[in-house]
Design a protein around this nucleic acid. Structure first.
Lengths: 123, 123
DNA sequence: TCCTTTCATCGAAGGATGTCGATGCAACGC
DNA sequence: GCGTTGCATCGACATCCTTCGATGAAAGGA
């Protein structure tokens, strides 16, 4: 679990950063650099908390799914929501995704600025 | 050079995406998953157009720098700004970075929503 | 207690990635 | 034309990453 970056990096006007910040940021981008892991994150973002067993629909072996969940978990992007019986449910960590969007120059949160107006977000 | 994604992926409320979109997005995140490449992008974002020769301050060999520039170029994140004599100057492609921020749930552009209000960006 | 279910971890194999020296190549200046 | 400078490409090597089967471990149910 790493601390969440709060600096812009890659957007015009960003301040020059230090080597350590490049390490931290790149390690989190690396967590999103695999299509399987993006599919997992997208599932958690769109559907909500999801049981690990649901991810076998991705067509990969169970250890492989577990491996990707571990990488996303260690990057701080997801976390265990709760456990019921032998099931484990994961959930998204919105602040972590938000921090990455901010590093890329995106506004912190549309809702904080203009309520949830779908019409204004899409162009 | 790939088309720039315009969909949200990893933010709460994002729609379920298709396999091809995970491939496209992850390949661009992969371009940002290396600290050297983040340093290059940060340089272009903060200082502006930069000659390739400036990047030898990163302490890597010239072929290695050229390799990373190629990856960023093929991801559409940077491009050749102009050439003078034997120098090659690279520039950032803000729309590409913006599209990635949007995929992570960041607002398309702060200016488009609420002008540049520093007070609201920092928390 | 014993078995089943679910998930995490381990170890190994194959492919991808970062790095370098050597080489190629285009733009100058002489 | 000839040498120099700056950058891209090539080939090679070490390392990392993705994937799998096998195994371990915890929670229940019979």
């Amino acid at each position: 679990m790493k601390k969440i970056a709060t600096v812009t990096c890659c957007s015009p006007g960003a301040p020059p950063l230090r080597a350590k910040e490049f390490e931290d940021l790149s390690s989190r981008f690396k967590a999103l650099s695999d299509p399987t892991r993006l599919a997992i994150v997208n599932r958690l973002a769109s559907v909500g908390d999801t049981c690990v067993c649901e991810f076998n629909s991705l067509g990969l072996s169970q250890p492989t799914i577990s491996h990707h969940l571990r990488i996303l978990r260690e990057a701080g992007l997801i976390e265990v929501a709760h456990k019921r019986k032998t099931w484990v449910f994961y959930r998204l960590v919105p602040e972590a995704v938000e921090a990455l969007a901010f590093a890329l120059g995106g506004a912190p949160q549309p809702e904080l600025v203009l309520a949830t107006a779908e019409g204004t977000v899409a162009r």
